[in-house]
Structures are given as structure tokens and as C-alpha cells.
């Protein structure tokens, strides 16, 4: 469970998130939609304490229960996808079989190449694999549907459905909701720095 109490984030005096209070319940899929630049990523960054905020953010469980990779995360220029999968599996003490995930997400053709050389679509699939291998209870996902073709988008949706079945809590932020909305339990609009819920 993630509880936001009067959370405010501002950059250079301009508020990106305005006094947000909300409770994200366990084992629910939240789709947070908003236009570009409206604070979607900032919300996730605040939840994992990557950006300074006012107010309170409470999270149940331990750090081992959460996985979030910001959209602008820079992978090491000399490391391959497999290096990262191995590292993340071990850092999160996960028992997931990496090879199985590589096969499932169809990463075989590029997983041993350097991540910095991946196209956007390849990178998104690789990041999806990172979510799966860490095997955490809560996924904070930042626009992972961007840059995916139809086939890979379906692969993402299938993986999200599978995660739902596994009772994971998912916060998925995006400005393109079409394919993801049917999977979500709750859709939230983030506009003008406020959260407005609409239950599906």
C-alpha cells in the first residue's frame, strides 16, 4: 500500500504536484493518465524519494517489494542486457529464471548486446523483463508502452495481465491509455497537479 498525504512537488517555485492525498491499495492496477509534462513521472519519482517533496509518503513492506525504473534511467555504456538482468535478479534476491524471461519477452536476439545500443522498442521490452525478473510485489511503471509496435504492445499487456494474476500492485503512468486501460482496475487523471479517480 502506498499512502500519499498532502504531497507537493515544485521545481523552481512552480508546483508540479499540488497537495495530493491518495491511497494506492495492494493488489490493484492503477492507470495514471495525463498529458506530457503534467507530473506523471514526478509522482513516481516522489514515491521512491528520487525528488524532494513536501507532505508524507508511506509505503508498506520493504524496498525489496518495489521496483521502479525511470524512463530517463541511463544504463551503463559498457554493459549488456543480460548483465543487468543478472544484477537485478540478485539485488532483489529473486528466484526467477532469467532464461525463461528472455525467451518469454523474446529478447534472445539482442540481450547480449550493450543496452545503450537498443532501439526504443528493444529498450522497453528489456525494461519489462527487468520488472519481471525482480519479482517484486509493486511495479511502478513509467510509460513502458511508448515506442512499442502492436505485437510488442500485446506482449506488454499480456505481461501486465499475468502480473495482475500474481496479485501485484501496479502503478502505470502513461499518456497513451488505449491498450492499457482495459487491464486497469482504477484509472486516475493527473491534471493541473491533482489526482482525480474514475473506477472502471
Amino acid at each position: 500500500m502506498i499512502i500519499l498525504k498532502g504531497v507537493e512537488v515544485s521545481f523552481k517555485g512552480q508546483f508540479v504536484l499540488k497537495h495530493i492525498s491518495y491511497q494506492f491499495k495492494d493488489q490493484m492496477f492503477y492507470l495514471i493518465q495525463a498529458r506530457n509534462g503534467s507530473g506523471k513521472t514526478t509522482l513516481l519519482n516522489a514515491i521512491v524519494h528520487l525528488v524532494p517533496y513536501r507532505g508524507e509518503i508511506e509505503k508498506t513492506g520493504t524496498a525489496n517489494d518495489y521496483f521502479y525504473l525511470p524512463n530517463d534511467f541511463q544504463f551503463d555504456s559498457s554493459m549488456s542486457g543480460r548483465d543487468y538482468l543478472t544484477l537485478f535478479t540478485n539485488l532483489w534476491s529473486s528466484a526467477i529464471d532469467i532464461e525463461m524471461v528472455i525467451k518469454k519477452i523474446k529478447l534472445e536476439s539482442f540481450i547480449d548486446k550493450k543496452v545503450v545500443g537498443y532501439s526504443l522498442g528493444m529498450r522497453q521490452l528489456f525494461v519489462l523483463a527487468l520488472y519481471i525478473v525482480t519479482d517484486t510485489n509493486c511495479w511502478l511503471i513509467d510509460e513502458l508502452n511508448n515506442g512499442l509496435d502492436e505485437e510488442n504492445l500485446q506482449l506488454l499487456v499480456d505481461s501486465l495481465l499475468q502480473a495482475k494474476k500474481q496479485n501485484r500492485t501496479i502503478l502505470f503512468v502513461t499518456h497513451q491509455i488505449e491498450k492499457i486501460a482495459p487491464v486497469a482496475d482504477v484509472t486516475i487523471n493527473l491534471n493541473g497537479g491533482n489526482l482525480n479517480e474514475s473506477v472502471e
Binding site: 528520487l50 520493504t62 524496498a63 525489496n64 539485488l91
Partner: peptide
């Protein structure tokens, strides 16, 4: 940002 905060260590 300090990306170490993303890791469970």
C-alpha cells in the same frame, strides 16, 4: 537524481 535509491540495498 541519485539512482541508488531505486535499489533495495
Amino acid at each position: 537524481k541519485n539512482m541508488d535509491l531505486l535499489f533495495p540495498r
